[in-house]
Computed example of a mutant assay.
Amino acid sequence: MNFASIRIITQDVDRLVRFYEQVTGVTAERPAPVFAEFVLPSCALAIAHVQTAQLFGADSVEAASNRTVIIEFLVEDVEAEYARLKPLVENWVQAPTTMPWGNRSLLFRDPDGNLLNLFTPVTEEAIQRFNRRSL
């Protein structure tokens, strides 16, 4: 099994696409006005309008109601990302902090309230855990 993607359902695809283009530095592929996809080396981040949720069943999802999933990006330098994103992000949850498991991490919310974590392994143990992953 290979993890392929995560999809965010939203009322405003264009707003989230603009936000994630700035966060990731990747231009979204837009095969339809109601759908966008960021193809990254490790997987894809998809953004879809609530209209598309009907294809999965009428009550399968609810836009902008997530409070349990954290979307995580492995980055080369958390401090540099924090400085770069300060003007863009409105809802900071945590400034760069070294976590007990050895990652330097910062957390913020996207315009729909989804939680994002940008992190860099900084301890020897954390670096070893991520050696097989690439940036």
Rank of each mutant, 00 (worst) to 15 (best):
T68Q: 08
G57L: 10
T97A: 10
R15I: 11
S5A: 10
A63M: 03
Q51R: 12
L74F: 13
D14A: 13
Q51H: 08
P31F: 07
S5R: 10
A32P: 02
R133Q: 12
R133M: 13
G102F: 12
H49L: 07
D77R: 04
R132I: 11
F73R: 10
V17M: 05
L107H: 15
A80V: 13
Y82Q: 04
R129Y: 07
L135S: 06
D12C: 03
T52C: 07
Q94A: 15
F19E: 03
K86L: 06
A80W: 09
L45V: 10
E37K: 11
E90P: 00
V61A: 04
E90Y: 02
H49G: 06
T68W: 07
Q128N: 14
A64F: 02
R129C: 04
R129A: 13
T27R: 15
V78G: 00
Q22S: 12
D112K: 09
T120Y: 01
M99V: 06
R18G: 07
E79S: 05
L116A: 13
S60H: 07
F3T: 12
R30Y: 00
E90V: 04
V50M: 13
L74M: 15
P31C: 10
V93R: 05
V69M: 15
R30A: 03
E81G: 01
E81H: 08
W92G: 08
L45C: 05
P100F: 13
I47L: 07
H49W: 06
R132T: 12
W92N: 11
I71E: 09
A36W: 00
F3V: 14
A48S: 14
T24M: 12
L135I: 14
A28W: 00
E125Y: 03
V17F: 03
V26H: 13
E37R: 15
L85C: 00
A80F: 05
A46I: 01
Q22M: 08
E29V: 06
N103V: 07
A63S: 08
L45R: 03
Q54H: 15
P87Q: 00
A83R: 08
N103R: 05
T97R: 09
L45H: 02
I9H: 01
V26W: 12
L135Q: 02
F56Q: 11
A58M: 01
